[in-house]
Design a protein around this nucleic acid. Structure first.
Lengths: 342, 342
DNA sequence: GTGAAAGCGCTAACAC
DNA sequence: GTGTTAGCGCTTTCAC
């Protein structure tokens, strides 16, 4: 089928080793092929359409030049951005990302990881499924197999692994501070229940900021788990809001996606945003910047998460060690049209 | 490092061959291991933490159980949806997608493809970069290497390859017909210049539909290539629109992303949509469905493209042959709030 | 019903 | 400066 090293060697009239070295341009002080030989070999190899079989070389070298990337979901800004960041870092190197998406199903996550170890990935970047079920496997991969691992977006409770994520705590904290500047006191926090570390951190940032502002009495949270239907959840949130008295002047919402539904529901109910109610999301998803939406929010930079995670992983696969410091990326408030001073 | 077949064999007291067969549960009429042996081997293998090395088995079998997926871009609904569809089909099989994104850079595309052939992918799904530069490589992969190939979204001019895509022609065609029903005659078409087959087909659908409605005289196209800045392009489009007389009553826009900008620009200029002007996009990107946007558009189902392409590829890798029929997926008009009858 | 051995394509140590 | 050779870990034919 494909042409092999041996065939090239025979054709050129040299040994396989010579071809191997000539093709790869092995530097190595020891080896010095005659420039002529190298040229010759390369020319003939090319003319024969020789393509090195990476499988064989991987088997030999214990290096596949592939990294496994486990994401939760393939649609939407977040993981797309991460993949993009990884792709940017990888360009120009010989490493290739191998993809898996578990959709928060930890059985699938396990299969994906096992697939990666069977295929001998040089390293793995993973956003865990949010349940501790697979902690054992992650640990095994890192400790027993010695395969470098970098977590993204959230840690695995109980494991000390390299992690790259946004500063989730600061997202809500800064959001509250921004809302405070506008004069808001009664700020209702809307969230899915914390199964993910990131969700929990956001909630804590909210609580801490409120306390710091002496607004402990106004801490109020609407949580639902799991959020099966965004629209229904949005209705429920506004029911809660309308029934409370006095009503909150602002809503801080765990992510932009939920915020869009709430905005829509406000509209149906004739609640004017931001006149009757300020609304703030988190994450700065693409539609938030659109003129028709204009959602105030707090950024997160998925591309950068991907880049940093990938850079770190490449270092680890090159034998460098991890300094045990989590990489926590800064976040930034963006005020748009759904918030106003009261 | 990792435990091998031989070690398991030695430990159990059988030959490597026996272990190999026992582990994989090889059916094969010939081989019948004693059920006891199988159980025994499996138990011990598991206890030793044996993980078959797929590299070795791939090398031996000429099958990697990996498929290469070449996309243009990693962010946004379209390729995310495709990856998602692929992932759905692949779940439950042992095949894994290997990812590459070329961002319409054909030099990168070439490197990606060469990487895939070096790594011996069982098959490749690809959205080409839109330039014919790599046609030779695609052809080589298919014909010389015999690696199954499925194109997505667009064909490569001059090559007859399996393709799965939306019915781009019908997108604009149906859009025009929907606009006709609302009474529109002067419909301006906005597009990036056609370097991609899909872009060209859309333009043609527009032209054909207009002709069919005896509106040849109203065919008018604003094209720009490349579209470097959406905002600037949107301004230009509205300049053209405002200066023409009589002005068009509707805009049909090559994709939703451009439409969002135009909507925003309409707003800045005080052009009321849909009262002063109807606006219609294409593709039904996520924000289009949002209450604050409500863009009328024509669907496209990226998930389904991914699914169909993957199903087809898996068939091809299993030795089935292609019936030479392109898979063209139907599209559907969705009227929302940016269009109205005149 | 199980074992022995050759070989997939490549690399690196060592020999010349 | 180049060739020889012994594997990497697995599968499969063939022999027992």
């Amino acid at each position: 089928m494909a042409v092999t090293l041996y065939e090239v060697a025979k054709r050129v009239g040299v040994s396989p080793a010579t071809v191997s070295i000539a093709i790869r341009g092995k530097r190595a002080g020891k080896f010095k092929l005659a420039a002529k030989t190298v040229k010759n070999v390369r020319r003939i190899a090319k003319s024969m359409g020789y393509r090195p079989n990476m499988l064989a070389s991987s088997l030999r070298n214990n290096r596949t030049h592939m990294i496994g990337v486990v994401v939760a979901v393939l649609q939407g800004d977040f993981y797309g951005g991460i993949l993009n960041g990884i792709n940017q870092v990888i360009r120009g190197t010989s490493v290739t990302p191998v993809l898996a998406a578990h959709n928060y199903n930890s059985a699938d996550e396990r299969k994906d990881l096992e697939g990666f170890i069977g295929k001998r990935m040089d390293g793995i970047i993973a956003a865990c499924a949010g349940c501790p079920e697979n902690a054992d496997l992650y640990l095994y991969i890192m400790d027993q197999l010695g395969v470098p691992l970098v977590l993204i977006d959230r840690e695995i409770p109980g494991l000390e692994l390299p992690i790259v994520r946004s500063d989730h705590y600061m997202q809500t904290y800064k959001a509250i501070m921004a809302l405070r500047v506008l004069g808001h006191k009664r700020i209702l926090y809307i969230t899915g229940a914390p199964v993910l570390e990131s969700t929990e951190l956001r909630k804590q940032g909210y609580i801490a900021a409120m306390r710091e502002e002496n607004l402990e009495e106004h801490i109020k949270i609407v949580a639902e788990h799991p959020v099966l239907d965004l629209r229904i959840f949005a209705k429920k949130v506004l029911d809660v809001w309308q029934k409370s008295s006095p009503t909150a002047t602002a809503l801080l919402i765990q992510n932009d996606l939920i915020a869009y539904e709430i905005l829509a529901e406000c509209n149906t109910r004739g609640i004017k945003v931001p006149d009757d109610l300020s609304v703030m999301g988190l994450d700065n998803c693409f539609p938030s910047s659109l003129e028709g939406i204009g959602l105030s929010t707090v950024t997160q930079k998925p591309d950068m998460i991907g880049q940093k995670a990938c850079e770190l992983l490449l270092k680890l696969t090159n034998g460098q060690s991890w300094d045990k410091e989590p990489t926590i990326l800064p976040v930034e408030v963006i005020m748009r049209k759904t918030t106003k001073a009261i």
